[in-house]
Design a protein around this nucleic acid. Sequence first.
RNA 1: GCCAAAGUGGCGGAAUGGCAGACGCGCUGGACUCAAAAUCCAGUGCCCGCAAGGGCGUGUGGGUUCGACUCCCACCUUUGGUACCA
Length: 915
Amino acid sequence: MIEPKWQRYWDVNKTFRCPELPDPNGAGKLYVLDMFPYPSGAGLHVGHPEGYTATDIYCRYWRMRGKSVLHPMGYDAFGLPAEEYAIRTNTPPRKSTEANIANFTRQLKMLGFSYDWDRVLATTDVEYFRWTQWIFLVLFDTWYDPETKKGRPISELPIPQEVQARGDDAVERYRDSQRLAYQDDALVNWCPALGTVLANEEVIDGRSERGDHPVQRIPLRQWMLRITAYADRLLGDLDSLDWPAGIKKLQADWIGRSSGAEVDFPVIDPASFAQWKQSRSASGFPRELKRPDGEEHVLRIYTTRPDTLYGATYMVIAPEHPLVKTITTPEQMRSVEAYCEAAAFKSDRDRTEGDKKKTGVFTGAYAINPVTGLPIPIWIADYVLISYGTGAIMAVPAHDTRDYEFAKTYGLSIVQVVRPDSATDEELNAIERGEVCFAGYGISIQSGSLTGLASQDAKTRIIAELTKYGLGREAVNYKLRDWLFSRQRFWGEPFPILHELDADGKPNGRIRAVSPSDLPVDLPHLEDFKPHGRPEPPLAKADDSWLYVTLDGKRYRRETNTMPQWAGSCWYYLRFISPRADGAFVDREQEAAWMPVDLYIGGAEHAVLHLLYARFWHKVLYDRGYVSHTEPFQKLVNQGMILSYAFRDQRGALISSDQVIEQEDGEVRHRETGEPLEKIVAKMSKSLKNVIDPEGVVQEYGADSLRLYEMFMGPLEATKPWSMQGVNGVRNFLDRVWRLIIDSRAEENLLVDSISDAPPTPDQNRVIHLTTQAVTRDIEALSFNTAIARLMEFVNFFTKETVRPRSAMETLVLLLSPLAPHLAEELWQALGHSESLAYHPWPAYDEALTKLSEIEVPLQINGKLRAKVVVPAGCAEADLEHAARNHDRLQELLGGKSIVKVIVVKDRMVNFVVK
RNA sequence: GCCAAAGUGGCGGAAUGGCAGACGCGCUGGACUCAAAAUCCAGUGCCCGCAAGGGCGUGUGGGUUCGACUCCCACCUUUGGUACCA
């Protein structure tokens, strides 16, 4: 078994240990990162080795090219599955997590990845999350200055006069409200059965994804991170990144910047509108609306289409809007209350999923359209979300599909104010009659001073007018929300936060950060961390000795929420740089030397959450001067998903693969019914019994075969199906490489007789240089499938050669070594080397030697291939044309036709255009 | 609905606008063998033809070009993602 031998060798010799700083005499630094795995009990699946092999090849290649390579691995080990498993088996999560990590490490080493194992870390290591907590304190100690567009220390926060006047307590509260980490009452998905809040993604149709338990929306005081402050920078800096365009777009859409205007609609008697307008004209547009009081109410809306303001025929506010209670008329109160109550029960997802039938209820109240002066009805509908914009909209049914649908349902009036630039009369009539909704840009009509303007110009114009009369202003909105950062779970990082208690032992609302010198705040030992059905975190059940702290004569209770799983993965790439650093989360000098990550490979499922969260933390750390770059991951590549074959019967039902018989003619039938089945490609799943276990593949075919197959399947970024026959194919190739060099009849590794010290023949030399060139280019481009194909061609060629120069075989072994390192090391040794080839210089190639002296050039007539002519390589175009014209076959075909034009491409082709 | 990626032999897939199908799987034939496996050699897009050769071929329809898998337009299909964001 040569694989364990070399794995031991690399381990014992620490072959892939990375220096603290890049070698100043080397070819530069390279930081290559894998998305570290969640160590589940199931072990590695075939998707892990795909990305990990790709990065491993890249690293091994660049080491041979002389770069200092940082290539670490770790574990993202906090999280709900571990906790659930712990509850089921009644074992502490730390114990099962450690066992899973040990298993993952064993499996990863079995695949021969060239990680620097001295740098391994887990987010659950106390010494790791000590610094996760420390970074949280940085967030807590930072406010975002919109002037400089930077995060700054909270001590530099200017305190407004009126706050200062109200005393220290008010100042403290004001500071707390401006921090990047702050507490807020948020509506959360609370699942009593699971005893935790759930992310929106974990709730389906009002029930939990796990266990199918009911989920309620309840307000809970939660920790939030002010990621919205960084929305503009997170969006703008995407430009500088070498990421797939699709992922950038996904992030941009997630941030969801839109621009438009805010407009105020007064809820008053039409008779007093003129007076209101005049007072607004004088006072200007108020920065913030006063809390609802007295007679005069104002609805502020946000719109991206202020140019359609004249077409606003009604308004809609969210059921949670603060004005619901105050403006609803007594007659409507009952139905409004019923509607709002029903809406409260639904989650955001519920409200937006399923059938999109619009529902709503009339408040009985009217607002004045500030440009037409006409009263328009105010409705409540759950298609308006309180969490976006101002929670209220102006409805323009003629030019917004949602408003249109709503208006049609409730018989509200539709007024057209935009005419399409180009449309048939029929279409124009249909819009005019309100039979269709036109949501595009065009020319404003029936819109006062805007009439005749193109939509974009109308926007600019109306915003100017609104601003002038104090009715509105230009505004920007984001879909991105602040990040709900706390969880009611045991298995996560405790917050380094203390709540001050009053004399009765109740929190008085003042909070205090744990001093950095008192970190880490370790998890307490809990006998019972099971959910109890109340939204109190499990840590509340900790011993008093953990829970209560006395500092400076004051009593405090620890924060009992824990951080979400994302926390640890937000900065692990920094810890890898100096994993044992004691005085800081990362060593400054080393950070500056290794960052940014030059290549980051992982699945596309992290396109938004992890990659956005990590960028956010990095920018805060940058603003506070702790890291030297604005972005962490310079180049990102998403590996494609590996699928597996599955079977479907005539009704379309999926059939478990152990129920299937494949016949010799390729037909597949059901084992019991004999029914013919369709072979399809599907995600691997337990129920389909089509899961491929990488460990089993290693046992049967070897790690090099698994690595090579996963790279040979197709382009790294493509989704592709697994085929065991394909694994066998690459295994055959590796065997052929072995037999090319090693005499398999002998017991020991003796070289085959045909290997000689003779120099390569010109033909052989051409193959050597051509292959070196192609493999070099392909590995650098992460095009491993074609690199392997080129090596196969090399082997096919030399298998036929009866004299195989040693130098050619050495080149082959070196070119193969990043892809199939175990076999390559063994062959390298057999070829007489005592050192590992891991740092042996990569073979060089001479482009001149890759060229043939004579080439065959295709001859076309009217673009159709008709003949070929052999000419010296690089021969002049005139000579090439001459050779083509003199070609017998071509002359025959050209006979009697007049040549209109001849296109000659040097070394490529000649095309005769004839009539 | 919207967004993204992709449609090439029996299958996975190759092809800076210039010989479509590299490489692998599968299949067919041959060598070796008592036989089988393994291995090696040859062939393998489809159609017509004994052959030489010819015709047709990269989802569909159009376009640009001397020349299109590749560029442009429209459409169809598949796979991901997303969902009332005003």
